[in-house]
Design a protein around this nucleic acid. Structure first.
Length: 376
RNA sequence: GCCUACUUAGCUCAGUCGGUAGAGCAUGCGGCUGUUAACCGCAGGGUCGUUGGUUCGAGUCCAACAGUGGGCG
């Protein structure tokens, strides 16, 4: 349940209460696709980097170890030892990113497993059943994510189908939550706005899904090919039609600058693979901008990654050591980089919240939006 | 000492019937936005051990020498 604490223009400071605890918004969800943050972080590590919400993936967990297995083991919370809120993505994005061999019908989607090529069918009901078995705090609607730009005719058709799917998701979730042996009978459901880069489709779609009175609303289908300014414009267009009393989630976004700009436009919740993936690849987010620790200029640099950072890596280890570890392909290098980057993202959200509480958000945004996305 | 194999990019190696050289790794740089991603892309880098010979033309065929490995004494 979302509680709006205060507003600064369209920017919102709030909190969201669930059966697995309350988290403060704006918030960033740390991506643990297969039930773990890639780079070797445990649930304890997640707590240490200040994570409030973990995000895992329906599709991946369905394939391995199997959602039935997870259910028998007591759910993903028990399995991973993360006892805070977990949001599961629905699998809709995988249909998009594993686009090779797929067939989308009114019923759902046929596509092949990236692990063994096996044919998989997933529709709204299947996605809800899997997420129910995983026992996540928040389930995402099964949607179709399309690339930008896409032809208007297709976007229109797809967005309308996603609304019909959403109604089916809601019915199925209600049914599952009412079963006596369901892991989490209070599982929440967020709807997802689609409509590509067409303002009127976005707005119509948002109005339609708002009527279903869900627990939260996401903006999907952004940061998938369109220019950044276009993404901001779509948020501006959709925001007035999003319920004020529901949490708002911008899916898959983004860079620190993207997040600040989206908070300014009224978004409460984010997730992105960037801090983890780019970290593993040697790109580190700092309060001075983005650093590529692979660069030879750091070979003998004894200073911490970011002297302004309080993470466990910056407190003890040098740029030279981290560069060495990553160049030497040591697991510890990736782990350190991901710990640092996630700490940075979670601290970014904390500072955004503090600035909203103190009424200094605009000056914070002024100072950091471009700086944090720039290269050192 | 004799026999034999090898010598091409920093490293490990390809290189067809003779037509002025490629890869992987390494190095340097870049990319990554609801993770098929410890991944992907680009770039720099070679008087083909040396000296001769054959040939219109040799990394490639021949000889000698040098170095390295293996075998036999």
């Amino acid at each position: 349940m979302y509680k709006l604490i205060r507003q600064a223009g369209t920017a919102r400071r709030g909190e969201f209460t669930t059966v697995h605890g309350t988290f403060q918004t704006p918030a960033f969800m740390n991506v643990a696709t297969a039930g773990a943050i890639k780079g070797g972080l445990s649930a304890d590590d997640l707590r240490n980097v200040g994570c409030q919400v973990m995000l895992s993936n329906t599709y991946h967990l369905h394939l391995r170890p199997g959602d039935d297995v997870i259910r028998h083991l007591g759910g993903l919370h028990k399995l991973s030892c993360w006892n805070g809120p977990i949001l599961t993505d629905s699998g809709g994005f995988q249909v998009f990113s594993l686009a090779k061999l797929r067939k989308i019908t009114e019923e759902g989607t046929h596509f092949s497993s990236h692990i063994d090529g096996k044919n998989i069918f997933m529709g709204p009901e299947q996605s809800m059943q899997i997420q129910s078995n995983i026992g996540s705090t928040i389930a995402m609607a099964f949607d179709e994510c399309i690339e930008n730009p896409s032809p208007r005719e297709y976007v229109e058709k797809s967005a309308a189908r996603t609304v019909r799917w959403l109604a089916r998701c809601k019915n199925e979730m209600n049914r599952l939550n009412s079963l006596p042996d369901t892991l989490n009978q209070h599982q929440l459901l967020f709807g997802i706005n689609q409509g590509g880069c067409y303002d009127d489709i976005r707005i119509d779609n948002m109005k339609s899904i708002a009527e279903l009175d869900l627990d939260g609303y996401a903006i999907g289908g952004l940061a998938v090919g369109e220019p950044t300014e276009e993404m901001y414009r779509i948020i501006d267009v959709v925001e007035p039609h999003m319920p004020k009393d529901k949490i708002r989630y911008l899916m898959g976004v983004g860079t620190p600058g993207n997040i600040i700009e989206a908070v300014r436009r009224g978004v409460d919740l984010f997730d992105c693979v960037m801090p983890a993936r780019n970290g593993r690849h040697g790109h580190l987010f700092t309060w001075q901008g983005i650093m590529n620790i692979n660069n030879s200029k750091y070979i003998e640099d004894n200073s911490p990654i970011d002297s302004a950072c309080g993470c466990e890596v910056c407190k003890k280890y040098s740029r030279a050591y981290l560069r060495h570890l990553i160049k030497a392909n040591e697991m510890l290098g990736m782990r350190f980089a991901v710990i640092h980057n996630l700490y940075f993202y979670n601290e970014l959200m904390l500072k955004i919240r503090d600035s909203l509480d103190e009424g200094t958000f605009e000056s914070f945004a002024e100072k950091y939006t471009d700086l944090l996305d720039s290269r050192i």
